[in-house]
């Protein structure tokens, strides 16, 4: 018991010191997920509670601010901290679903395209190029305008935009993986194409996939924010970081905290995911693991 505790401690120490574990980023990300799950229970105020008496109350450290409204209130007197906490859930849902959709499509298409090559590859990759070349935000806006703003549509729009990025990187990896001898040996043993793709190739791109997914969380949150900012995001009264910035921008001069605080939330979360992704990329680099 004690030894396993000590070992765990050693492991953490090793992670933190030897491998420069991004503690800040991970704590931010953990809090982000915690807020997404339990935001309602944790937030000091209901997010949509209007209190016209406390309109534009500044953050607590400024004159006129109060500890109760820690980060201040907006034009309707709603508590900004509470709204950010609740808003985390929407960002989180959008990120998870659209990354899952994009990642899934991208992986399947990337593997199929790289493995079979030829015409299949040509068509799929041209489609991917077209998707990437098209201004992403514009595409997402178009989609959600055509389909109407809703959670599902935002996710669909983002996922359909994202797949090409995954497919391209994964195809590249598959191209080199399929030339490796273990694939030839699997064929000699009589493995089917499906078996080779699933058992021999797929496990070798998990790392890449994980890094890609992490690095794109930030991007998804920003695009989602941009969509909301332009009114093509999630509808409804519930707070969304992007639309909080959008609606607050008219107060930039008079009550800067109204757009600034949700903007900061977006920035910090994105930064954290990028830091984590960079770290993962370094730690999972196959060249580094081969040394051991």
């Amino acid at each position: 018991m004690l030894t396993s505790f000590l070992n765990a401690g050693k492991w953490l120490w090793h992670l933190y010191v030897k491998r420069r574990f991004p503690l800040f980023a991970v704590s931010t990300i953990v809090s982000f997920f915690a807020l997404a799950l339990f935001g309602e229970n944790l937030s000091p105020f209901p997010p949509n509670q209007v209190d016209l008496g406390a309109r534009f109350s500044p953050p607590f450290w400024q004159e006129g601010g109060s500890i109760a409204h820690f980060l201040g209130t907006d034009g309707l007197g709603r508590d900004i901290l509470s709204r950010i906490m609740i808003g985390a859930r929407n960002s989180c849902i959008v990120a998870i679903f659209s990354l899952f959709l994009g990642g899934f499509l991208g992986t399947v298409i990337g593997i199929v395209s790289g493995y079979f090559g030829g015409i299949v590859d040509g068509i799929l990759m041209r489609m991917g190029d077209a998707t990437i070349a098209f201004p992403i935000i514009l595409l997402a806006i178009l989609l959600s305008i055509i389909l109407g703003p809703s959670l599902l549509n935002v996710v669909a729009a983002l996922g359909l935009v994202l797949w090409a990025r995954y497919a391209r990187v994964i195809r590249g990896e598959v191209l080199s993986l399929k030339e490796r001898d273990f694939v030839a040996l699997a064929r000699v043993a009589g493995a089917s194409d499906l078996r080779i793709m699933v058992k021999h190739i797929l496990p070798n791109i998990y790392n890449t996939l994980l890094v890609l997914l992490t690095l794109q969380v930030g991007w998804v949150i920003i695009v989602e924010a941009a969509l909301s900012f332009m009114g093509a995001g999630l509808p409804g009264p519930d707070p969304v970081w992007g639309s909080m910035v959008a609606k607050g921008r008219q107060y930039v001069t008079s009550a800067w905290w109204v757009p600034f605080m949700p903007g900061m939330a977006i920035a910090i979360v994105c930064l954290s995911f990028n830091m984590l992704g960079d770290w993962l990329r370094e730690v999972l680099d196959p060249r580094m693991r081969q040394v051991e």
Binding site: F182, L185, K199
Partner: peptide
């Protein structure tokens, strides 16, 4: 497929790394 087998040069590349 069972009767004819192969062993290749590069011991790094001939075993699936994740199996």
């Amino acid at each position: 497929r069972s009767a004819v087998q192969a062993v290749f040069q590069d011991p790094m590349s001939s075993l699936s790394p994740r199996m």
